[in-house]
Amino acid sequence: MRHADTICGALLAALGCALIVSGAAFPAAAGGLPGAGFFPQAIGTLMAVLASALLLRGLRGRSEGPFSIGNMREVAVTAALLMAYLLLWGSGWFVVRTAVFLAIMLSLLGQRWIPAFGYASALAVLVYLAFDVGLNVTLE
């Protein structure tokens, strides 16, 4: 059993079925024309069929062991940090917030604190100047 194929296949088959079911609830068009639900159902059917094939292939295939993410910890940390950064989006102090976020990220990825903070600050100011001052995109 190949885990990646099996999981992807199962998830996408479920999504395909969801599209078919939800498509049936959309209003039909007059005069026998395809309505708002036609494409969701067509795509859902195609997806469900193909995903089932992938699911079968995954169940029958040779095991490749659990799929490897590599440096799992660093990826997870980066993703979590970015999530926190996005949750704070628009809460003020854009330059400081961005510099701190980047500096923490860089140091967790093994960079030394002081150069990381200097670079992060420079990057934050550069982005602020380019977008807020230059392009009139309010960053706060």
Partner: peptide, 17 residues
């Protein structure tokens, strides 16, 4: 890592902009 930081921050702000 420095390159990654640049891509992330420009990508984030660019997506917003």
């Amino acid at each position: 890592p420095w390159l990654w930081a640049g891509i992330i921050v420009f990508g984030t702000v660019g997506a917003y902009a």
